[in-house]
């Protein structure tokens, strides 16, 4: 299974970025390979409008099974994300990537 995180850094101890559209990084944990890979999304800072759909497009391309984030997508991003079978879990805004994964495994996060 592939699990994606919106994050403010590139490692397991990085805080989750509660924002979906303007998240700085997207981390992808490939459970089968036990590998964490990084997609740099910092150029989103330069986007004046439409950050949500743009990052949603990126997630669409990465195509993970699960996304763990803070606030969840806004209306426009949600329209894009509905097109892929990815499940979204929210409420991890104050956790680190590592603790968010644990919280997800323990069913402590809410499905969007």
């Amino acid at each position: 299974m592939k699990i994606a995180f919106t994050a403010k850094g590139t490692g397991w101890d990085s805080p989750i970025d509660p924002r979906l559209g303007r998240t700085e990084y997207i981390l992808l944990y490939d459970e089968d390979k036990d590998e964490l890979s990084v997609t740099d999304n910092r150029e989103i800072e330069g986007v004046a409008h439409g950050a949500g759909p743009k990052t949603a497009q990126l997630l669409f391309d990465i195509n993970p099974d699960v996304l763990i984030t803070g606030n969840g997508p806004g209306d426009n991003a949600a329209v894009v994300l509905k097109q892929i079978p990815m499940k979204i879990y929210v409420g991890a805004g104050e956790l680190t990537v590592k603790t968010a994964l644990e919280a997800y495994k323990n069913n402590e996060l809410k499905e969007f």
């Binding site: 509660p18 924002r19 979906l20 559209g21 950050a51 803070g70 606030n71 806004g74 805004g93």
Partner: peptide, 10 residues
């Protein structure tokens, strides 16, 4: 709109 969503996120 967009600025409000940005105000709220986080």
């Amino acid at each position: 709109g967009c600025p409000v969503i940005s105000s709220l996120s986080g």
